[in-house]
């Protein structure tokens, strides 16, 4: 299928980009890697008046060490994230989840920022963002502001970015030593979206879980933290399978999972518990 016509601008800097976006009005859309947007355009499910292509904005690319956090530029591709030594060393959960996004060709074009700004609750990275309390850096003509991940994902395909704002990058806090990570994705085929996914980070000390951060994919119209599980898991022995299972049983609390061809809400609630248990076990052993 074929996209409807649109105007196109390709700014060469972030300043130009935010100006272009503001000038283009409210029906404009930012084009990042296009791996989610292009199918929507082709199916004519989106009719932007203008696409602001931020693919050639140098400030938006790359991964930097910024002390207590890692900055990942919004236009860093999934493939570049996967190959970043810094990401792998300091934010392994990001690498683990990114490796499950779509397929290699899509990961060559699709971007870290694009996937987050698209805010698909079935996407793998939003759950990681909330689990790790990433800080989203938004730029507009009025300057820069930071939005905590918890407040960034508002609803299905909806973020806290205002009109005229571009997600410039993400600050991923470094968690320090003692953490283990796992991303548990459950889907029907390798290419399919997650029915449910669980992003888990677990800090261990002397065989005991001291702290856990758990993000849930596709359990509501936005990514969720499994707060009750995080509470329940504190102090449990990393090898105590039964106790961890008991803690994971809280995973479905305060969720509002969708119903679609791949599963009803009750099945998803059940899966969230099973997968959270598995993610905890794997993260605790990692």
């Amino acid at each position: 299928m074929i996209p409807a016509p649109f105007d196109y601008v390709r700014p060469g800097s972030l300043d130009e980009a935010v100006t272009a976006l503001a000038d283009a009005g409210e029906d404009a859309k930012v084009l990042a890697g296009g791996q989610s947007l292009l199918p929507l355009l082709r199916l004519r499910l989106a009719y932007p008046s203008t696409l602001v292509d931020i693919g050639r904005v140098p400030e938006l690319k790359g991964v930097r060490d910024e002390g207590d956090h890692v900055f990942i530029g919004a236009m860093t591709t999934h493939d570049e994230v996967l190959h970043s030594d810094l990401v792998r060393a300091e934010c392994p959960l990001v690498a683990l989840a990114t490796a499950t996004v779509a397929d290699p060709a899509v990961r060559h074009r699709g971007t870290f920022g694009g996937a987050l700004a698209h805010a698909d609750p079935a996407g793998d990275l939003p759950a990681v963002a909330v689990a790790l309390d990433m800080r989203m850096v938004a730029r507009s003509r009025d300057g820069e502001r930071e939005i905590p991940a918890a407040g960034f994902f508002v609803d299905y395909l909806e973020t806290a970015l205002g009109p005229g704002e571009i997600l410039a990058g993400v600050r991923v806090p470094k968690l320090g030593p003692g953490w283990g990570f796992h991303y548990e994705k459950f889907h029907r085929t390798a290419q399919a979206w997650a029915i449910v996914g669980v992003a888990a980070a677990v800090r261990r000390s002397n065989g005991t879980i001291e702290e856990a951060r758990i993000g849930l994919t596709n359990m509501a119209t936005r990514p969720l933290r499994a707060a009750a599980v995080e509470q329940a898991v504190r102090g449990l022995a990393v090898t105590d399978t039964a106790a961890l299972r008991g803690a994971a049983a809280h995973a479905a609390e305060n969720t509002d999972p969708p119903s679609d061809l791949h599963g009803g809400p009750d099945y998803r609630r059940h899966l969230a518990q099973v997968l959270t248990h598995r993610a905890l076990m794997a993260a605790a052993a990692a």
Partner: peptide, 29 residues
């Protein structure tokens, strides 16, 4: 396909595989 699932249109762009149905020609400039 319309949704970048099938991969029949895969080409290399600057040495890396991409699905050419999900790239605008202007992006390939």
């Amino acid at each position: 396909c319309d949704t970048s699932n099938c991969g029949a249109c895969t080409v290399l762009m600057d040495g890396k595989s991409v699905k050419s149905c999900s790239v605008l020609a202007v992006q390939a400039d």
